[in-house]
Design a protein around this nucleic acid. Structure first.
Lengths: 349, 349
DNA sequence: TTTAGCACTCAATGAAGTAGAGTGCTAACA
DNA sequence: TGTTAGCACTCTACTTCATTGAGTGCTAAA
């Protein structure tokens, strides 16, 4: 299924034009705007061929052509030119990531908003997986009779906490003892590296507090459950309403209702099959309900380790070149920003 | 501006009918459906009077009447009958609040979703104010050279944490010492009750660590800044798209963009002028952009203390009786659930 | 192989007419 | 005096029909 150079030029023209105007593109328009040195009639002939090969389609007989999913795929794989962010866009992003960050949640949320604003698509940002990396500190705090708060601080700075019920006989002093033993034994370990022998040691040192230990270890284990504590941030949803595709309320409703299902979003974000920015076009998305959308997703990381994903969900007719560049750029910036927070330097208070 | 009994009945009929159908209500319809024992002509006469008094209006000459904001206000204040939740609705709510709660954030989020689902309006739930109540535990944890994590556990179980930069000379042991002194001195205190003398005592005991103390106290103080850590949960936004009022994309866009501004939402939720459920109709909302909406808001509390607000934002033509009942019921249930989390009993893991 | 010319198609637009819901007014009635 | 039947009037919403124009495919000539 080879396309000759002129067919490529025409396909490119159709896609660029359609992305821009959201209207079917006619041969005349192409001849006029894209100086290919041939007449509309010639372009029509080529278009007929392109249609036969499945790269474009016609909404109805007397309309121009619009790209098919296959056309977009070809475009993304072979034709698309790299989009260079405008100075304004770069400024907007730089401004966001150089300002001091109080809080990771806020950073992710702002990332989502930026992503949405810049791409005019729905943006989705997954929070960094908490289970990444070893424990830094474990603390049990008395919270009234029979209850304690277990606070887990991970090496990377993330914090997790749970209320647990404990026997009423346990005192604050007991909790301090248990905390210090757990700290001594477990800090530096990840959930995976906690071996049976280690646990045995702990139980030996704290035979009196078996029940509390059971609970604590239960929590430690459950924190490994993937997605257990995942949060997903949505950004600037209203921007997608600028897309003519979403002037149809039903479509907006479908999209919004999907976006509220965190588990579904997580599974969508997990569809990354290669390093870097991934593009899923229409039917390539493994979710029936949004096969008339496209996704552009990527994974950000901390310290070289993948930590989470982010991406956008928008109409199939999206400006892939631009969206890809933006997702790429934001991924990188987010990674750097997180790095700075976790690994030190800069962020005061 | 007195309404006689028949006028009240007619106004009530118009509002009930309009809430139900979203169509202007004619005299015929009322005569047919609401057995007032009078003819359409009589109803027309009364309607003319009601219109003159400003309780209803006519979209155009040959249409029926719709309630004016003033009409709704009168309805809410005098005419409305208490809505009794259906068994299904009660079940849905009970189910939500009797299941074990892992996490306050999740509880609030689910509350928002329920609120939205049941009312078909946009739901907004503010997180409990963290600064409420005294400290339970203060812990400084070493996070690599020159950085520490300050973890504040409040008496009510909420947790706050911040990364701070510390002099590189401070060791983990130092942090433990500082933590225990701070704990001894400050636990049980609220930000307000920390007196100068107390601070002086702490500085005396920890003269070597003045710089760290400065930072810690700075953070403690800043945690008092109202709204500093407020999170606002939105729920089930797509439900509002079921309302015919929001078939207009521009309106949806306005609403969505407003809902993303947390500060604005916070100020809207703050417009509570009396105990219990508050209703703001159209122009009564002090925000230009959404004066074609109504709000129903209430404050939930923990241990008798107000802790945060929640509410819904929907079309002026909303089912006030139902929405008010639901907001009321959810507020109560949320309060109880939070109580249970904070004050003990039940919630394991 | 390219292109000019032309007949053809079809969505979109707008004008005109129609139907129907609802009103206000008047006059009769209780 | 309050109520009601009757009726003319108003105005939106819908349907129908013709028109416009963008765009195509085909044919024949360059």
């Amino acid at each position: 299924m080879e396309l000759n150079s002129r067919q490529q030029q025409i396909l490119l023209a159709i896609i660029n034009e359609y992305i821009d105007t959201a209207e079917p593109v006619g041969s005349r328009t192409i001849a006029r705007k894209y100086k290919l040195g041939v007449s509309p009639a010639t372009i029509r002939n080529e278009m007929a061929d392109l249609e036969e090969m499945g790269f474009i389609e016609q909404p109805h007989t007397s309309a121009g052509r619009i790209p098919s999913e296959r056309g977009y795929r070809y475009y993304v794989d072979y034709l698309m030119q790299k989009y260079k962010l405008s100075p304004e866009e770069e400024d907007l992003i730089r401004q966001e990531y150089t300002s001091k960050v109080r809080d990771i949640g806020l950073l992710l949320q702002r990332t989502g908003q930026l992503l949405s604003q810049l791409t005019q698509c729905a943006a989705v940002v997954q929070s960094p997986k908490i289970e990444v990396g070893p424990y830094r500190h474990i603390q049990l705090i008395e919270m009234g009779v029979g209850r304690a708060l277990l606070v887990l601080v991970m090496e990377n700075g993330m914090i997790q906490h749970r209320l647990i019920d404990i026997p009423a006989t346990i005192t604050g002093g007991d909790l301090a003892t248990i905390s210090s033993v757990l700290n001594a034994k477990l800090s530096g370990h990840t959930v995976e590296t906690i071996r049976f022998t280690l646990i045995k040691e702990i139980y030996l040192e704290l035979t009196r507090h078996r029940r509390v230990l059971d609970l604590v270890l239960e929590v430690l284990r459950s924190s490994l459950v993937p997605g257990a504590e995942d949060k997903i941030y949505l950004g600037g949803l209203f921007y997608i309403l600028n897309q003519p595709e979403f002037h149809n309320i039903e479509k907006v409703k479908t999209l919004l209702s999907l976006l509220e299902q965190e588990s579904l979003l997580a599974s969508l974000l997990a569809q990354i099959s290669k390093p870097g920015v991934n593009v899923r076009i229409g039917g390539e998305i493994s979710c029936q309900a949004i096969q008339d959308c496209s996704m552009v997703i990527a994974t950000y990381g901390v310290g070289g380790q993948p930590a989470g994903s982010l991406g956008v969900l928008g109409p199939i007719r999206m400006d892939y070149a631009k969206v890809i560049s933006i997702v790429d750029y934001l991924t990188e910036n987010l990674s750097i920003a997180l790095e700075r927070i976790f690994k030190g330097g800069g962020s005061r208070i």
